[in-house]
Measured scan of single mutants.
Amino acid sequence: MPVRRGHVAPQNTFLDTIIRKFEGQSRKFIIANARVENCAVIYCNDGFCELCGYSRAEVMQRPCTCDFLHGPRTQRRAAAQIAQALLGAEERKVEIAFYRKDGSCFLCLVDVVPVKNEDGAVIMFILNFEVVMEKDMVGSPAHDTNHRGPPTSWLAPGRAKTFRLKLPALLALTARESSVRSGGAGGAGAPGAVVVDVDLTPAAPSSESLALDEVTAMDNHVAGLGPAEERRALVGPGSPPRSAPGQLPSPRAHSLNPDASGSSCSLARTRSRESCASVRRASSADDIEAMRAGVLPPPPRHASTGAMHPLRSGLLNSTSDSDLVRYRTISKIPQITLNFVDLKGDPFLASPTSDREIIAPKIKERTHNVTEKVTQVLSLGADVLPEYKLQAPRIHRWTILHYSPFKAVWDWLILLLVIYTAVFTPYSAAFLLKETEEGPPATECGYACQPLAVVDLIVDIMFIVDILINFRTTYVNANEEVVSHPGRIAVHYFKGWFLIDMVAAIPFDLLI
C-alpha cells in the first residue's frame, strides 16, 4: 500500500533555474538572501570558489559584500557603492579590487542584480563577478574607477581610450546646418538635424578633445543650467548677453562664444560640459537660429522629431539603469545623424518603425519583477520565466494532490484497515475457520451469522477504491517536481505499489 509523501509542494524551481543557467555559462556568482541580516550568502558556485580561493563552506553565510576579499588596494568608495546597491532595488555595476585567499590582487567587475517577489519586494541578490585585470595590471588604489561605466561593446579594446569628441564640431553647429540641408533625401539625416562627426583615429590627448566618459557625465550638469543662461549661451556672438549692473557675465554663455574659444586653444572642462549641455537642449539648428531671432517656433511634425517616441515608452518600462547606459552608448555611435529632440514631445505622434532597438522591449506582467540581467542570462521568455513566489501546480481535472487534506485522511483510514487485516486475518484463519468446520452448517442466516465476513468484505472494497484513487494521485519525481499527468501517474504506480495493492485487495476469504 503506498505511503508516498512529498510535502515540499507547491515547489518553486526558480532558484534552481537560475543556478542551472548560470552554471551553463561558466559564470562566477553568488546568491544572497536579502531578508536576513547583512544579506548572507546562501549559494556560491564553483567558479566563484576558484576565483577567490575560498571553499564553499568558508563563503556560505558570510555577508555578500565580500568584505573578506578586501585588501589594501580595495577602494572604500567601491565598497560603499556595493553596500548601497544592496540597500536599493536597481541593478548596478561596480569595479573593485579584490584579494584572493593567497593574497593576489585582481580588479573585478561586480554586477549586483536584485530579484523581487510578486509584491515588488527584493528577496534575493545575485552578484556576478568578472575579472577585468590581474594584480600586475591593477593601478594605484588612489585612482577611482567606479565613477565610470563599463566599456562599450562596439569599441575595440585597444581603442576604448582613444575615443574623442571634438569640441569644434559642437561649436560649428550653425555652420554645418547648410551642408545638412543640402544633403536632402540623399543624406542619412532628416531636415533640421545636426550631424556630429566623431574622430576615432588614435591621437595624443589634446586640450581640444573630450573623453567619452566626460560626455556621459554632461547629463548630470544640465539641471544646474538655468533657462535664461541656456538661451544666452545659444544666442551666440551676435547678441551678447546682458548683465545687470554690478553683475558679471555668465561664464556659461561665454563658453560657447566662437570668438572667445578661437582665441585660446584650450577650454576648461567645466565650460566644455556646460556648452555641450546647452546645445543638447535645442532640438535642431533651426531652433538655434530661432533663439537668435527671439522667436522659438513649435517643433515640426516630421520623422526626426518622432524618433524618440518609442524611446520614451522603453525608458518607462525599463527595469534597470543598464538600459540608460545602453541608450547613452548607442546615442554616441560615430558617423550617424543625431536628432536633438526633447523627450517631452507630442504624445499624438505616431511611433516610426526603427531597425535598431535601443531599449529592451516591454516586459510582460509575469516578468515585471525580474531584472534585465536575470532575463538576459536565463534566456527565457515571458511565458517560461515565473515570478519568485509559491505557485500552485497546474493539475488535470479529477486529480488528487498527494499533500491535500483528503489524501491525508484517506491514508490514515487505509492504515487502520491494514492494521485490522494484519490482526484479524490470522485470527480468523486459526480459530474461526476451525469452529466453522466443526459446527453445523448455517446457510440460512447468511452474513448475519458471520459479522467478521462483512467487515472483511468492506475492507476489500476499500482497498479496491484505494487502488483507483492512487491512479489519480500526484507524486514527486526525482527532481522534486509534482507530477499531475494521468499517464505518468499510471506508469509510476504500475512500477511501484500496484502489484502489492492488488494482492492485498483480493478477497481470499470469499474465494475459499
Rank of each mutant, 00 (worst) to 15 (best):
P157Y: 01
S379W: 08
L210I: 06
S250G: 10
S379T: 07
E91I: 11
L324D: 10
Y43C: 01
V215F: 06
D16F: 10
R281I: 03
G186I: 06
G184W: 13
G236F: 15
R159E: 06
H309V: 09
G103E: 14
R62F: 04
S379F: 05
H309I: 09
T270R: 14
Q61M: 09
R159V: 12
I42T: 01
I123N: 15
Y327N: 12
N257L: 08
S255K: 15
Q335I: 01
G183D: 11
S178G: 08
R242I: 09
N38A: 14
G192F: 01
S331A: 07
G236R: 09
L173Y: 15
P352D: 03
P10V: 13
N317Q: 07
P2R: 05
H368P: 06
G187Q: 15
H309L: 07
V122R: 07
R366N: 07
P205A: 15
L155A: 10
F125M: 05
V195T: 15
D355Q: 05
L165N: 10
P386Q: 01
A193G: 05
S104Y: 03
E95S: 09
T270E: 13
I330N: 14
F106V: 05
A32E: 01
R356W: 01
A97T: 12
D67K: 05
D213L: 05
S55Y: 01
L109M: 06
T162S: 08
E289I: 06
S104F: 06
Q247M: 07
C52M: 09
V131N: 06
A203N: 15
I363M: 12
F125H: 06
G236H: 06
T17C: 13
P114E: 01
I19M: 06
A142Y: 05
A156Y: 06
D144F: 10
L311E: 05
G71A: 01
G262S: 15
L200A: 15
V370W: 11
G236S: 08
P63A: 13
Q61I: 01
R252T: 15
S313R: 11
I82T: 01
D102I: 01
G187W: 11
D346M: 05
D259N: 10
G71N: 01
P249Q: 09
A293D: 04
E130T: 15
C64V: 09
P151L: 15
E130F: 06
C49D: 01
L69C: 01
R92I: 12
E357W: 06
N220D: 07
A175Y: 03
V59K: 01
R5K: 13
M308P: 06
G139C: 10
S275G: 09
E289S: 04
C276T: 11
Q61N: 09
N146S: 15
S55F: 01
P245K: 03
T174A: 14
P310N: 07
E134L: 06
P240T: 14
D136Q: 11
G186L: 07
A217W: 08
R301T: 11
A83I: 07
V370T: 06
A172P: 14
A244G: 09
C44H: 01
A79L: 13
G53D: 01
S351N: 15
N45P: 01
G345K: 14
P168I: 01
R20F: 05
E130I: 05
D346Y: 05
S304M: 15
A185D: 14
P249N: 10
R27Q: 09
L51Y: 01
